[in-house]
Design a protein around this nucleic acid. Structure first.
Lengths: 197, 197, 197, 197
DNA sequence: AATGAATGAGTATTCATTCAT
DNA sequence: AATGAATGAATACTCATTCAT
């Protein structure tokens, strides 16, 4: 899925990229189809040649964003070996992604409720996929003797929630320059060692 | 702030409660002022006697919900002594709150981005208050020797995010019957002991 | 049904009368809701308070027109006794109606196909009612020995078609001053005596 | 004019035939140029090579239909001698035409008002031509002593209207199997003998 | 204070038409 | 000559808000 990386020049991708920018900047309701068309450098009618409605445009843009996000993850986690390093890498990638693609991240963070059940379901499925992935990692860590025994479902959700929460802080506060390594070490420290003295 | 607990019968509270129900069920944009008025058993014009706009109604409803939530927290955390127990109690209260007030929780979960900067800021402030509160707790735990040394800001955010994430799962999945104690023990276990073997 | 006679001043009737004028002048598609509202002296939104769509407004206006037309007929045919005079009176009333209410007649003449099956069916039913009425008249004439034996269905349709055709000529040519008596005599002559020498 | 009889294979005729089918099935406004192009098996742009606009396409299609109708009439009335038989033949041809070409008949019946003054005028002219033709027939009948003296204008219109009305009934009711001879005899009986006992 | 009838600003969408290929 | 991707003018409809009662 390279539709959103800026290199594709076909109309559909142009529109998707413009949609990502405008929806991110204004949210679904305040974004106007006309503005997206303008931003994409095409006529208003052209948007409807490729997408049957504003809603579908949002849906497709949203899917593209999510796919792009997941794609990046999958690609860059392939090489890691130790579970701890993989978990750490998830945090690194998440924070880097947010720093580099704060527009898209904004959408993933904010527009969940906008579009109705279908897309919401799709998004939850994708989220559950991520959590399942983390669960597998943790389970693997337990099996390998790296991690102690625990409820992996809860652990995965806690880890995921924590990463999202810290990432959200970066988005919300518009922080661009953060010491990713330091934050990762701290988060990993918390998860590995706990907070008890 | 007892406006939302169902006991107050003045028009303003009636409208706020109706607004909470309708906004929760439909989201900001699909909720109609007329429907809220109907649900509250008042005329459409009456809504505007108490609130200058739909947006302000949402804001006020949102504030009431949040205040109610915080109020509950503060009241029930007053007695706790040990930091560990207080942190555990935060999880308990959050999960209980979600189970009992899933409507309101839905709003707090979903409608962040709906209303624009001002309310968003207010909400973030409230969230920062909660995080600050958790930060203080953790700091206090460190000072008392209960907890090890760490970056309390990150720790507080990780804790907060984790609690929200696990709570969100309950809302999203519509889970009504959960073993709160078990979940709390697991979460606390993770935070206290870490995941490392 | 006095909604269209110009005496009622409630908003619904105002809108119906304005709709009759504008639809008659421009046809369904070229008539703009905004223009009807303007003509009625109300706001655009008010039209939608009383009618759920432009289509429904047309339907209701159409029904009102038709009812008004039928009402007039029924009222003024009540006194007639002889079948011949009643048939003659139908022609008289039809021509008079067209002369006085050419706007409405224009609609009844032209907009049949505009609105889709439902209204079309309704209109055909009304037309069949009129034909059935004429059929009864002719049958009664036969029974009373006034008229010779014939296929009353065909006779009724031929009579109805003839009246409509001659009426249509008045509308289309915009003829205002016609010798109704002369035309009636001629038509009746044709029907009574035939054209054969 | 054989453009519509199905034998011509040039693009223009293909488009005209497709237009007749689609306009008949959907009416002017609901018929889409794209669908007509599709039905004709040509590209959308090609339609505009042969017709400058949708309106003109309708006009040309309409004219072709009417010409085809008139052509058929003229051809088949040439041999008749007696006025009575010619009038009877008009009815026969009209009913046969409707049975065989109900699509085209539908258009001639319903779409009068759709297109605006110019075509409307043209159609009225054609109609007046038909009426004039009938008028001449009747006048000739009077001159020849076949028919009694009467207002030939009114008589022609009454005859025309009656034929159209009975034909319309066939279209509207979708009647395919009718005893054309019986109906003609009845209509002619009415016109020749009248309805009086 | 309470009401709800009236309002009109604001927008997604359609589709006839154009024109580069 | 033939095409169909691209266009944007045109319009029905929604609903927050007002204000006379």
């Amino acid at each position: 899925m390279t539709e959103l990386d800026g290199s594709s020049t076909d109309k559909r991708s142009q529109i998707l990229r413009a949609a990502a920018r405008v929806f991110a900047a204004k949210g679904f309701h305040k974004a106007k189809v006309e503005e997206i068309a303008l931003e994409a450098g095409v006529g208003k009618g052209t948007v409807y040649e490729y997408f049957s409605s504003k809603k579908e445009l949002f849906r497709e843009m949203f899917k593209s964003c999510s796919m792009f996000y997941l794609e990046t993850f999958r690609r860059r986690l392939a090489d890691e070996k130790s579970v701890k390093y993989k978990l750490r890498q998830i945090i690194v990638l998440h924070l880097e992604f947010i720093q580099r693609h704060s527009e898209i991240a904004m959408i993933l963070l904010h527009e969940h409720a906008e579009i109705g059940e279908q897309l919401h379901q799709w998004m939850l499925e994708k989220q559950e996929e991520k959590i399942a992935f983390i669960k597998e990692l943790i389970q693997q860590g337990i099996d390998d003797g790296e991690l102690r025994n625990m409820d992996v479902d809860i652990a995965a959700r806690v880890f995921f929630g924590a990463v999202v929460a810290v990432g959200g802080r970066l988005i919300i506060h518009g922080i661009k320059e953060v010491d990713v390594d330091y934050i990762c070490d701290e988060i990993m420290g918390l998860f590995l060692e706990g907070i008890k003295k």
